[in-house]
């Protein structure tokens, strides 16, 4: 009676050693009996296959692994022949974490870029607003009353009082504001623009409008000065006709 059992054990060990086993773990019916049989740990994971391979018994032949799902699972988990389910899960979790981390890094880069562009634009706008403010903007009455309705410039809707962050704290890099945004650039200082009165632009024709716009948007102080002078001269000539 023992001889067939020993033959079976021997064949099983040979097959396992040859690396034929690949199926997930199934409780081994022979684990308790093996005891000192010296079966390698991988044998515990694939006893069904071993049994199938040894006995060629159709009754004990386990079903083939499911096509898409487990196939994908092994692709996603990069499962090796000896991994337990726990290990595979941990591997997939790690890949998920790594993937989330690298995606976070990409998003951070994009958000920093967006923030820098926004800050640069606001700095330029602050400079031109300072120049305009020294101009004859006497009819700006609607600016004050309308200020309460102006849409907020901040693109992030995370004002704590109104909309407490619903999602878990996001990467704060999207909220980056360079220190320059808070300061008023002094590009007009010393270039004489402050000493000159810039006419009101409400009656500008097409050419004057474009000159004014170019002067407002120019960041180079010298060019800015020249453009404002062009604009003023043009307005004088146009009014003088």
């Amino acid at each position: 009676m023992r001889t067939p059992l020993n033959c079976f054990l021997l064949v099983s060990a040979l097959l396992i050693g040859a690396g034929c086993a690949s199926s997930p773990s199934v409780p081994s019916a022979t684990r308790g009996q093996e005891g000192g049989a010296g079966a390698a740990p991988p044998a515990q994971a694939q006893p069904a296959t071993a049994r199938t391979g040894a006995a060629a018994d159709p009754a004990s032949g386990g079903p083939a692994p499911a096509g898409g799902g487990p196939g994908e699972a092994s692709a996603a988990g990069a499962s090796g022949p000896g991994q337990t389910s726990e290990e595979r899960r941990a591997a997939i979790d790690k890949r998920l974490d790594d993937s989330l981390g690298s995606f976070d890094a990409e998003l951070r880069t994009e958000q920093q870029r967006v923030a820098q562009e926004r800050d640069a634009r606001r700095a330029a706008a602050a400079g031109s607003a300072a120049a305009e403010g020294r101009g004859a903007d006497k009819s700006g009455d609607s600016a004050g009353t309308a200020a309460t309705e102006a849409p907020p410039e901040d693109t992030d809707s995370s004002a704590p009082g109104r909309h407490p962050g619903r999602h878990k704290p996001r990467d704060p890099s999207g909220d980056l504001k360079s220190e320059k945004a808070g300061k008023k650039p002094d590009d007009n200082a010393g270039n004489g623009a402050s000493a000159r009165e810039i006419p009101d632009g409400s009656d500008d024709d097409v050419v004057a409008r474009r000159l004014r716009q170019a002067a407002q948007q120019e960041t180079d102080p010298e060019l800015k000065e020249k453009l404002w002078q062009e604009y003023i001269d043009y307005k004088k000539n146009a009014q003088g006709k």
Binding site: S139, G140, S142, A143, A146, D200, G201, S202, Q216
Partner: peptide, 11 residues
């Protein structure tokens, strides 16, 4: 809002 650039920007 069309009166000045500042008014345009404000509203």
């Amino acid at each position: 809002s069309y009166k000045t650039d500042a008014a345009l920007k404000a509203r």
